[in-house]
Design a protein around this nucleic acid. Structure first.
Lengths: 138, 138
DNA sequence: TCCTAACTTGGACTCAGTCCAAGTCAACAC
DNA sequence: GTGTTGACTTGGACTGAGTCCAAGTTAGGA
């Protein structure tokens, strides 16, 4: 992750302890934390970090294309550090767990031009829903 | 739409003027209003209807499977009366317009079992993003 | 080591939505 | 029709997620 921080510094990002704490929290695969969860974990590293700063840092990382904003339920947005490989999400309807998944083919190709209403397509987001092994009955 | 109201009455839904107003607002294709927009239009028919009642009625219509809840941006949920034909959504990144679209094939089929992590799949929601003709440059 | 623009802070604020006790009324029975 | 009653509606208070802002702090170049 320190290469991420270096990369951002090269783009004029001032490297503060708060931003470092936020970036460190957002490490790994299948990480999909809400802003409040990020804040709670950042506080463990840097007790005086404020909620506003976490929101600022997350917003900047999103604009810089380093993390993705995902909203899988109507509630809080989640932040996904896996921004460098195209993927979709599989969400458990029981416990809310989110996994990154890689469907076959180009999702945009399935939309015939007659169904595009003159739009210029830029992307497609897929949310697969189901029950994870822990939440499956039986 | 009156067949919808009759259908609901048969299911024990008490038919009040407020619920009638909400149901009437939610008529037509490509209708994707927020709760506040539904409230504003319902007030035009029934000036004393309250926001709480609109939320109640929308929630019940969703549970009864008569309308769909859609969240295309992280903001207010939208309500889609087109619950009886499977479809996906195409959203303009410029103005937020939402169209119902019908992609080819079964979206779930694109997810290989190795990518299902033991989940039992129940559905897939696709949000296509792009620019509508009015928002396209040039 | 100094300087300053960029960053951080806490608190007030907004927006979307939920909850609740009190009042109202649709629909059924007569 | 009239009465009854439980379901429905109401407005206002409340919550959760997120934004905004003026004042204070600090990273990093000179």
């Amino acid at each position: 992750m320190s290469d991420l921080l270096e990369r951002l510094r090269g783009r004029g990002w001032r490297l503060t302890s708060q931003r470092r704490a936020v970036a460190e929290v957002l490490e790994g695969d299948h990480v999909h934390l809400t802003a409040d969860e990020v804040h709670a974990r950042a506080v463990a590293r840097l007790p005086e970090i404020s909620r506003a700063t976490v929101y600022n840092a997350l917003g900047e990382l999103v604009s810089l294309g380093e993390i993705l904003e995902v909203s899988t339920d109507g509630r809080a947005k989640r932040y996904d550090p896996n921004a460098h490989r195209a993927h979709q999400h599989l969400v458990c309807s029981g416990c809310g767990t989110v996994r990154d998944v890689h469907p076959e083919g180009d999702p945009m190709a399935a939309l015939p031009s007659a169904e595009r209403f003159g739009f210029t397509l830029t992307g497609a987001e897929i949310t697969y829903r189901g029950l994870c092994p822990d939440c499956s009955p039986g």
